[in-house]
Every structure is written in structure tokens, then in C-alpha cells.
């Protein structure tokens, strides 16, 4: 059974149809990259997986470990093991990062039938994961993302991912706006967490990230549909040739899977 199985998914927002028949299957242990030009629907797909309520699914299904994901509230999805690293993480003044992460970890543990972590173990867990993304522990006492630089916000997302240990992590352009050092930190975080039991869906604009996170599959999302899938070499092609040749191929009726 696939970890994630998306079948013929249509989704719209404010009456605009954005996803127009997405099909995607992700198995445990795999890393998939999703690429595509701006506005093609990548963030929409991520939002629908995470359960953002503004998006209306008009057709299709999403199964997570065989269960109907679309029937679950966002927090239930998180507890089941879905994690979204936001393209634009919000700043939440007044909510301390430590308190928020503590609440989050314990909600997930409760869902798994585990005891809440005591203060010392919680601290140990957070410190270990902070080290992974090379963040200082002073971050914990600050409000969530408040006054963080762009790079710090992205690292904070990876930090949270590391703490929550999801089964499926969706990274929405976590690489954009990062300098090469920060990019390596993010990639390193992903590689450290990656194992045979989890999977990653890495949305990116640039091939650059894929030098560090090596995907098993690369998909091209164009105008709300996955129009081409291939191995990691597809990313290099896209980097070199852009997306126009795919559009042309499509118009010429070429086969969609190389």
C-alpha cells in the first residue's frame, strides 16, 4: 500500500479551479520532487494535503496509509503524521515557540497513545533538533517566527519537522530565498530524517536543492496537472530548458511519462 495516493484530484478556491486532475503515488522511503512554474498549483496541492479549509475539493480522493485523508481536520492529519513546511510561515506574536512546540509534540504523542514528555525530555528533544538545523536555543523563548529572517523561518519549519517526526513531510519551496549555507542546513535536516518508514514531497522551483536532496522521482505540475514524471535527471533538463518544451510536447500529444 502506498503511503500517499492522490487520485484524479480537483480543487478550487473562491470558485477558481486550480487543481485539475492530479494523480500521484508516494511510497514509504521515497523522496518525490514537484516542480513547475509559478501559479501552476504547487502550493494549492500542499494546502489540500495539509487540510486548508478555504480549498474545496470538487472531485477525486486522497488516501494516506489507505485512509481517507480528506475526511480529517488539519490537526488530525498532523497527528496521523502529515507535516507541511510552509512556503510563507506566519509570524505569531505572543506565542512562544517552546510552548507551542511542547503543545504540538504532546498532542501527537497523545494521539499515538503515549505519555506526555516530561520537561527534561522535552528540552533534550528540542535541543537535539535545534542542533540539527544549527539554531540557537534562544529561538525557543521567542514568539513563533516573530522577527525571524527569511532563512530563520525556513529553518524553524525544518526544526519543527524534526521534532514532530512525520511520516509524510511536504516542503513547499523551503529552499527559495535561502543562501547556499542555509540550503545545505535544510537539505541536511531532510537527509538526516529520511528513512525507510517516511517519505518527502519536496516542492521546489530550482534544481539546486536537488543536488543535496536526491529525489527518487521528479514530477512537473503544470496548470493544475502533473504532466510529466521522471527520475532525478528530469530536474536537470528543466533547469536547462525551462518548461516551454514540456508545453510543446503536450500540445504535440507526446507521451507524458519518460
Amino acid at each position: 500500500m502506498a503511503l500517499l495516493e492522490i487520485k484524479d484530484l480537483y480543487a478550487s478556491i473562491d470558485g477558481n479551479e486550480i487543481l485539475k486532475g492530479v494523480n500521484l503515488k508516494v511510497n514509504k522511503g521515497e523522496i518525490h520532487a514537484i516542480m513547475g512554474p509559478n501559479g501552476s498549483g504547487k502550493s494549492t496541492l500542499a494546502s489540500v494535503i495539509a487540510g486548508r479549509e478555504e480549498y474545496e475539493v470538487t472531485k477525486g480522493s486522497v488516501l494516506f496509509e489507505g485512509k481517507d485523508l480528506l475526511a480529517l481536520a488539519p490537526e488530525e492529519r498532523a497527528r496521523e503524521g502529515i507535516f507541511l513546511a510552509f512556503q510563507y510561515p506566519v509570524e505569531i506574536p505572543g506565542v512562544s515557540t517552546a510552548n507551542f512546540i511542547k503543545a504540538s509534540v504532546n498532542e501527537i504523542r497523545k494521539h499515538r497513545g503515549e505519555e506526555p514528555l516530561d520537561a527534561a525530555s522535552m528540552m533534550r528533544l528540542m535541543k537535539e533538533k535545534l542542533a540539527l538545523v544549527e539554531m540557537d536555543k534562544s529561538f525557543l523563548s521567542r514568539s513563533v517566527n516573530e522577527g525571524f529572517s527569511g532563512g530563520e523561518k525556513k529553518r524553524n519549519e525544518i526544526f519543527q519537522m524534526a521534532v514532530m517526526q512525520p511520516k509524510l513531510a511536504v516542503l513547499d519551496e523551503t529552499d527559495s530565498g535561502l543562501d547556499i549555507d542555509a540550503l545545505k542546513i535544510v537539505a541536511n535536516g531532510v537527509n538526516k530524517l529520511h528513512n525507510e518508514e517516511n517519505a518527502f514531497l519536496v516542492i521546489t522551483h530550482y534544481q539546486r536543492l536537488l543536488d543535496y536532496i536526491v529525489p527518487d522521482k521528479v514530477h512537473v505540475l503544470l496548470n493544475g496537472r502533473i504532466v510529466k514524471s521522471g527520475g532525478k535527471e528530469l530536474a536537470l533538463d528543466l533547469e536547462e530548458r525551462g518548461y516551454d518544451w514540456i508545453k510543446e510536447e503536450l500540445e504535440a500529444g507526446a507521451p507524458q511519462n519518460s
Binding site: 498532523a78 506566519v90 505572543g94 503543545a103
Partner: peptide, 30 residues
């Protein structure tokens, strides 16, 4: 309450009521 904030907290496993409480508390804390 800001819907974006609520969704962020819920996407990390906090239920809607708890997310609201946390944000409301943050508002009061100032």
C-alpha cells in the same frame, strides 16, 4: 483571530479550540 495563525497551529496538531486559546492568550499577554 487570524485564520492563517489558526491554520498554522492546527497543522502542527493543536485542535481548533486549543489553537484559539493559545492565540487569545497571546493577545492578552501584552
Amino acid at each position: 483571530l487570524d485564520e492563517e495563525h489558526l491554520f498554522y497551529l492546527r497543522s502542527r496538531g493543536l485542535d481548533a479550540a486549543n489553537a484559539k486559546a493559545l492565540l487569545t492568550y497571546a493577545f492578552a499577554y501584552e
